[in-house]
Nucleic acid binder design. Structure first.
Length: 376
RNA sequence: UCCUCAGUAGCUCAGUUGGUCAGAGCACCUGACUGUUAAUCAGGGGGUCCUAGGUUCAAGUCCUAGCUGGGGAG
């Protein structure tokens, strides 16, 4: 895998780059829609590629391992073929599930034991096994197994957690180096910086990642409840340590404003469930702010969802119609709002790239942040 | 005409032997949602308990009459 920074913003750490993978090139900064179970919920693969212009999507190791399972994925020839997606895929390792499914897992030095939320069966995930699984899934970019440290975490816990994640990173990287892709394209391995909100821990973690020399690095454990200013401080600190010539991936973030601010801090890759999940629940992101389409005020608003919006649905359907669909719990409502929101996110990063290239990013970002912060 | 059952929130209904009995679900309104156990979750407004009398310290709860609706008999 190769990463090439093509343009740098003068007023901030924002930059544009091209990341080439086994399934083609990705322009950064990029937003990666989340497709946990081999589907970006509510959006089919053709719309995802042709309308949304997604360049890469996510899958999840834990969820795909449980269902459909490795035999089915291997039999299909990997996740790309299984789901009919020709562009790159990044898989999260299950590290987030260590956090989000804390009730049904036991954390040990060796790894994490999960009780399947589907049938209760026990499964032991180790840093090595998670690499093996991601080999079989066939992710272009596979993530190290980590613990997404919960918030708040006191210093001793955050330190223990961060250090274990470092040891897991070493083990995962070793397994990665000693194994080959299952299919006929390159796979790469990204480690994940942890350390909660403690600068000292973040620094240590980031330094070790930098040393490891992987083709890309991720920042995890943020946007889990801490104040946003602290999140930005951590990103700023970590990005000052992570190598400039490698892509930086901020995991699980975030709101459109979070994304713009983080691009300004030098982040290149993002993923978040927000556009799909919030979309299903009636939140519509637009250039002029966030809309709760369930609100009564849209009941008879026959204007387009978003004039000049990024998706074909924006001018094809009205707010009143979308409200009707969402309130009636019609499947199409979830589909339209997901498509709109994800297209909006991709539009946002596309605009950011072009502003960085033009050298007008700072002013544009300021203006956008103001607009995007509003509730309409 | 008689018998019988029912009448409690916008809707469908819970409310034990009269004493936190003014409740639920849905609907409506509003809010959350950040590497997806979420087409989810939380909160809010809203009722002269059909009407009028009566019994009782106390009545959606018991009694009488009426009104409305369902079922049945003639």
């Amino acid at each position: 895998m190769n990463f090439r920074v093509t343009d740098c913003d003068k007023g901030s750490a924002a930059r544009c780059g091209i990341l080439s993978t086994g399934h083609g090139e990705i322009e950064t900064p990029i937003f990666m829609p989340v497709g946990t179970q081999g589907t970006v919920k509510g959006i089919n693969q053709r719309d995802l590629a042709d309308d949304v212009h997604a360049q890469i999507i996510l899958g999840n190791t834990y969820h795909l391992f449980l269902r459909p399972g490795l035999d089915i994925l291997r039999g299909a020839g990997g996740l790309h073929r299984f789901i009919g997606w020709k562009l790159p895929i990044l898989t999260d390792s299950g590290g987030f599930q260590v956090f989000s499914l804390s009730d049904i897992r036991k954390l040990k030095e060796e790894g994490a034991e999960f009780r399947s939320h589907i049938d209760g069966a026990k499964h032991f995930f180790t840093p090595e096994r998670v690499v093996d699984i991601q080999r079989i899934i066939g992710a272009d970019i596979m993530m190290a197994f980590d613990e997404c440290t919960p918030y708040p975490a006191d210093y001793p816990y955050a330190k223990t957690s961060m250090e274990r994640t470092l040891r897991w990173m070493d083990r995962g990287l070793k397994r990665f180096s000693n194994t080959d892709p299952v299919y006929d394209y390159e796979q790469v391995f990204f480690p994940i910086v942890q350390g909660s909100i403690y600068p000292e821990l973040r620094r240590q973690s980031a330094e070790r990642m930098a040393e490891a020399g992987c083709p890309g690095n991720a920042i995890g454990g943020l946007a889990v409840g801490e104040p946003v200013t602290q999140m930005y401080e951590m990103i700023h600190l970590v990005n000052s340590i992570l190598p400039e010539d490698k892509p930086r991936y901020l995991m699980g973030v975030g709101t459109p404003v979070n994304i713009l601010e983080s691009i300004a801090l030098g982040v290149d890759m993002f993923d978040c469930v927000m556009p799909t999940r919030n979309g299903r629940n009636g939140s519509i992101f637009t250039r002029n702010g966030q809309i709760n389409i369930k609100n009564e005020k849209w009941k008879a608003d026959y204007s387009p969802i978003e004039e000049g919006g990024a998706s074909f649905v924006d001018e094809m359907f009205s707010k009143a119609y979308l409200r009707h669909l969402i309130i009636s719990k019609e499947i199409l409502g979830a589909q339209i709002s997901s498509l709109h929101n994800v297209a909006f996110y991709l539009w946002l990063v596309r605009e950011a790239r072009s502003k960085i290239k033009e050298g007008t990013f700072a002013g544009w970002k300021k203006e956008m942040v103001e607009k995007l912060s509003k509730k309409v």
